[in-house]
């Protein structure tokens, strides 16, 4: 159904007199990719949509029984699932706020005459390129209550970062802030360097205070690009699995993705987890939509 839309002729283009026609080349280049994505992303989702209305468990050979909307009803009424959503919301707010403050702060510092600026920026970028799973693993070493360098460096004695259920979520968020602040910094730097210099000069001539300059010139001009960083990070933090799963096994750090993983692959509630996946999916698509709108807006500038 989808392919016919692309294949429709587009008259007036350079109809090739030799070799393949433009139209044929276009289709040859585009259709395999679209097909591939449909087969390996959309088709599986349709496949699991069917299962979401059943009580199927992949660990048994029992045939799936149709249960209608029971899975969805159960999930939306289950208080534990709502707790997972609350935890995720808290985690997203803490880590994205932290990243914006630290990342934007670093960008403000770097947006000056700093010697070796290029090298420093590259080094600062390193954390976000690393594997989330492996970062989670080695932060376990850093957080260790008895020999971790964080407790030693901050003089916290035997402070339990990960074993204390009230602190664990903050510890996971802190690692996320360490890892992804550079991302916000990178985008903020791009925004800051695009602010026309003459605006600052004009503000200086008008004897505007630095606070006024910041809130009236810098912030409004950087805002759209900062917004992209915030939406993107929100979406990624919402999906967080690897790092939190490895760092902490506390119930207070059970994010949605972790709950989903456990439900599907440890408890083998295949039908129920398919329904859960759909609830998550709808939320992600909604955030993605906002993200793309903003991307296009910034692109047009």
């Amino acid at each position: 159904m989808a392919l016919s839309v692309i294949a429709r002729l587009e008259p007036g283009s350079r109809a090739a007199k030799r070799g393949m026609s433009d139209l044929a080349i276009r289709n040859l280049f585009i259709i395999p990719t679209i097909t591939f994505l449909i087969v390996f992303n959309i088709f599986p989702l349709l496949y699991s949509l069917g299962y979401s209305f059943t009580d199927f468990r992949a660990s048994t050979n029992a045939p799936a029984k149709f249960v209608g909307l029971d899975n969805y009803k159960f999930l939306l009424n289950d208080e534990f699932i709502w707790r997972n959503f609350t935890i995720t919301a808290k985690y997203v707010i803490i880590s994205v706020t932290g990243q914006v403050i630290v990342g934007f702060g670093m960008a403000m510092l770097l947006n000056r005459d700093i010697p070796l600026k290029g090298l420093i920026t590259t080094l600062l970028m390193l954390p976000m390129m690393l594997s989330m799973a492996v970062v989670g693993l080695f932060w376990k070493l850093l957080y260790d209550p008895s020999f971790g360098i964080i407790n030693y460096g901050l003089g916290l004695g035997k402070f339990e970062w990960l074993a204390d259920p009230d602190v664990a979520l903050y510890a996971v968020a802190l690692t996320d802030i360490w890892m992804w602040s550079p991302f916000v910094m990178l985008l903020s730097l791009a925004g800051l360097s695009a602010v026309p210099k003459h605006l600052y000069e004009a503000a200086e001539i008008d004897r505007a205070g630095s606070f006024y300059t910041f809130t009236r010139i810098t912030l409004p001009l950087v805002a759209p690009i900062l917004m992209i960083a915030i939406i993107f990070r929100t979406m990624e933090a919402f999906k967080t699995f690897d790092m939190a799963y490895i760092l902490s096994s506390q119930p207070t750090t059970e994010l949605i993705a972790i709950r989903l993983y456990k439900m599907a692959f440890l408890e083998w509630q295949t039908g129920q987890s398919s329904a859960f996946a759909y609830i998550v999916l709808i939320m992600v698509v909604a955030i993605t939509n906002i993200y793309v709108k903003y991307l296009n807006k910034v692109k047009e500038r």
Partner: peptide, 16 residues
């Protein structure tokens, strides 16, 4: 949008 899907969501049907 295919990239934005959480891996675990795609993994359930792909696993089956």
């Amino acid at each position: 949008s295919t990239r934005m899907l959480p891996p675990v969501v795609v993994a359930i049907p792909m696993f089956l």
